[in-house]
């Protein structure tokens, strides 16, 4: 027999270890019905927690007073500088061990809090750079109309700043989804398991890595479309909705009608 017609045992093992379709097909139902929802819950929770912390921290970082900036600066530097795994363990294992149990013995809550805290540190810097990129004339115009500093920031400056950093935020959301897998370290009850946990259980049971490929495909199904959706949103916000009015040409000014004598005169 021609030896070349025999399948190479090494490549066979490689394909079997990573692409055992039977195992992948066997893992998918649990990934979809249980893991996907739990991963999304942890990631969405962490994103919301992160955004709330980040907005507050960004406003503090923008202060002219060093003692207001200091706590926000420490928070950002510490949680951007620590390995994610250390923060997850400190929050998920350390807090309950120290008797601080806002979520009881539920690892879900601690996972959301830990990943939210890390996300907030990164997002705070994203927000700060976005807000700082807004023309100072916007704040001046809002203040000149009588808006307080906080109202002017909330209604005029912050919405513009956040719109400018949507692509960077998409990157952060993707990171949050991926980091939700670290909840694995905290141990989860049946029904709470997210994508990585389920895949890892199958790997331990079968000594085969194919379930990890299945979980990886699920992560990619979340992360890649998310990036495109946010980029599309960013493009729409920049260019305006399709079918909107075309920009007015410079010489198309409608001649103004005379301003009435009642135009705000209280002389």
């Amino acid at each position: 027999m021609d030896p070349s017609s025999q399948p190479d045992p090494a490549s066979n093992a490689l394909v079997n270890t990573f692409f055992n379709w039977d195992l992948i097909a066997q893992t998918f139902p649990r990934l979809i019905t249980e893991g996907l929802l739990n991963t999304l819950t942890i990631a969405a929770g962490a994103i919301v927690v992160g955004i709330v912390i980040a907005l507050l921290a960004a406003l503090l970082l923008l202060s002219h007073r060093w003692w207001i900036r200091l706590p926000a600066r420490l928070y950002v530097d510490i949680f951007r500088g620590l390995p994610v795994i250390i923060t997850v363990m400190l929050v998920g294992v350390g807090l309950p061990a120290a008797g601080i149990r806002p979520f009881g013995t539920e690892p879900f809550g601690y996972a959301i809090l830990a990943i939210g805290i890390i996300s907030g540190a990164y997002t705070a810097e994203i927000f700060r750079s976005g807000i700082q990129s807004v023309d100072p004339g916007q704040l001046q115009a809002a203040r000149s109309l009588g808006l307080s500093y906080l109202k002017a920031m909330r209604l005029v400056v912050v919405p513009q700043g956040i719109r400018r950093v949507l692509p960077a935020m998409a990157g952060q959301f993707v990171k949050d989804i991926k980091e939700s897998s670290l909840v694995y370290l905290l141990g989860l009850a049946a029904g709470q398991r997210e994508l990585y946990f389920i895949a890892q259980e199958e790997v331990a049971r079968t000594y085969n890595s194919s379930p990890l490929i299945a979980a990886g495909l699920c992560y990619l199904c979340l992360t890649i479309p998310l990036t495109y959706v946010v980029n599309h949103l960013d493009k729409r916000l920049r260019e305006g909705p399709k079918g909107g009015n075309p920009p007015a040409v410079a010489d198309a000014d409608v001649p103004p009608t005379p301003v009435s004598a009642t135009a705000g005169v209280q002389a």
Binding site: G240, P255, A263
Partner: peptide, 25 residues
Amino acid sequence: RLAEVGLAAFADRRPAQLSGGQQQR
């Protein structure tokens, strides 16, 4: 007020869709 500066028809537009003179009005 927009009618007084000749721009009532532009109420639904975004500022970027207006010329400089219209924006100032």
